[in-house]
Design a protein around this nucleic acid. Sequence first.
DNA 1: TATGAATGAGCATTCATTCAT
DNA 2: TATGAATGAATGCTCATTCAT
Lengths: 214, 214, 214, 214
Amino acid sequence: MTTVSAGSAPSEETNSKSERTRERILHAAAQVLSKKGYAGMRLGDVAVVAEVQAPAIYYYFESRDDLVEEVVWVGAYRVRTNLESMLAKLPAETTAMQRIMCAVESHLWFGLHISHYATAAIRIVGQVPEQLRTRSLAEEARYQQIWHELLKAAQGSGELRADIDLRTTQMLILGAMNWASEWWDPQQQSLENLVSATQELVRYGMGLRVERPR
Amino acid sequence: MTTVSAGSAPSEETNSKSERTRERILHAAAQVLSKKGYAGMRLGDVAVVAEVQAPAIYYYFESRDDLVEEVVWVGAYRVRTNLESMLAKLPAETTAMQRIMCAVESHLWFGLHISHYATAAIRIVGQVPEQLRTRSLAEEARYQQIWHELLKAAQGSGELRADIDLRTTQMLILGAMNWASEWWDPQQQSLENLVSATQELVRYGMGLRVERPR
Amino acid sequence: MTTVSAGSAPSEETNSKSERTRERILHAAAQVLSKKGYAGMRLGDVAVVAEVQAPAIYYYFESRDDLVEEVVWVGAYRVRTNLESMLAKLPAETTAMQRIMCAVESHLWFGLHISHYATAAIRIVGQVPEQLRTRSLAEEARYQQIWHELLKAAQGSGELRADIDLRTTQMLILGAMNWASEWWDPQQQSLENLVSATQELVRYGMGLRVERPR
Amino acid sequence: MTTVSAGSAPSEETNSKSERTRERILHAAAQVLSKKGYAGMRLGDVAVVAEVQAPAIYYYFESRDDLVEEVVWVGAYRVRTNLESMLAKLPAETTAMQRIMCAVESHLWFGLHISHYATAAIRIVGQVPEQLRTRSLAEEARYQQIWHELLKAAQGSGELRADIDLRTTQMLILGAMNWASEWWDPQQQSLENLVSATQELVRYGMGLRVERPR
DNA sequence: TATGAATGAGCATTCATTCAT
DNA sequence: TATGAATGAATGCTCATTCAT
């Protein structure tokens, strides 16, 4: 799904047994991190989930923090590349607002459905020591930049009101979606439903519209 | 603002020295919790912030978890009562939508400006063991209920579109605000600004309105 | 019951309120000690039993060890003086063996029925640091001495076999009685019964006697 | 002496290095327990004696209480199996009284000479929380049962007086021997001596026998 | 005479990490 | 490539003890 290009990119195609084990550990860490938080993740738990012994982790990662760093980075990396590839697939004539709607779908779909990495990365932001965030911060900046350009384009094309505070609004929207991992329950509501409700809110707000745009 | 006097309510008026120490510890715990998360809160850190020795905490709280439980509960309790008292002050003729705007202001103002408790409670949701959440879950349910009634009233009065998914929208809005504690920086943006940007988003969304309602 | 003569003797007649509290604490300590052992006795438990607050203990005793020391000493002291007063009451013509039987009764009766102090003193022998035992060791030596004289007298009068190892036998008998506190249950067996069974064992052993002496 | 091989029996043959370490910790715990009592046993002391670091104990035992439980059980188990194997070695024609004498020897020899476990088990009876005693209580019941049968057989064969209270006498004898760990000093008296003095007391008591039975 | 408040020392336990194999 | 065994550095918690009142 994710289109991985460069050498050091986080592969999802597992090759050798060794690489598969490494991936299993990373997966397990993402899972545990998203449930227990940064300080709450114990290597023992990760080992259980990954079906290895705890010391085996050290064969693949220098330290616990290294493991966390990678999870967080992979999360951010995949969220960004996923969005990029989704946007790339859109036909040229897609309007700016439709692109934003696509980004909403990408964010929710990826964060809630595909990847523990994203959830983990999202949930432990703010608990992770600064020094572990260098790589992921860069990714997040790129991601924010993509969103920023989407919004600016929409404003340019007149699809977005000129008077809104772009940066704040962007953060509020991403926040609304990030927080969904705290309450959204696939048993109670389909992801499609959540996506369209979010798109509605983002586009029109809750208030009454006298005349439906478009 | 909330002056709670009755029964077992969490007092903010500190009386005896003993009560003040207890409050200091509770404050400190909220602060540390919101920064480090549930598993990351060490009693030693709390003690340093509260300017006591760590074992003194046990004079006031049965256990670490008891302390966390109280912080989380106080957070939820104060958020709810703050909203109630804000709403109670509104004149009778206030429209349903205006009440919602007031609730937005209350939520952001209280969560970001007034109380580490609220931030703590928000940030560690999902990390705290279920058994510590009994009291706070009840509070949160009451809070959600108040919001739900606000939205329903607005829908009833025709100020809200009839076709939106109330529950999902409510969660998205609260999420957008909760997440603000992750990125909002008082140095860069005034709270007033954040509040009005949020109110705008909630009310009208980002999209162009052909004709401004009302 | 105990005939206390000298000034510093452990009084059982409580006079002032202060003295009564002190006695209550001492009692409580004896009770807790006999149940939990030396290291297991917590001042908090003692305080609960004595119905005071823990720090109050320090008004009456220099330290925890001081309290223990006194309990142990009072136990030893009372066991000794009790035996002495029992023996003193016997008519002049009492035989040496009858005196021993009286001592057996005294030991059991006192250790099991009257006094937690004795039980405590007995049970924690060997756990208490040497330095706390100075006074009580002296008492115990006196007690052993009394027993030794009783046995020697009986050997002298021909009531005891000449070929038995007096010291070892004495220790075995006292041990048999001391250990009774571990298993004797007043609900299942009267003290009188235990006393006479012990007297029988001491006097005749378990073995068949061809001809009953005397 | 006891060579236990079957099932979950506490092995004395140490095999792997790991098993030897575990045994060393168990030994150390028995030693410390018998000296300091249940509450007085610190894992630090055990670790020093076992020549490991304290946390290493947790590699072999779930908790401090688990360690205590095992010591107490091993003590009870070995005392019982030792007695059984001693009795099993006696020739068929051994009289019931001689069997009892053998049991006395076994108890003293094992409790005082061979095994800290036995001493520990004996000394901390009554301090150990009930829940740690399940396994050992079962062992002790079996041990008491063996003794009971020995005594009953002797009464049946006419070697024991018919009029003695079997249960009480049995407890007194075992108590006399258990207590020996409090006072017996191998420097001052040989174990052989203690054994024969005890056998004498058990068989004939202290009193004068007109005619030596048998 | 007694207690509420607080502390320092110590203890059981956990956990990331190491290392020989 | 992986694990069994072990450890050092915390960390929560207990408890004797102090002290102002």
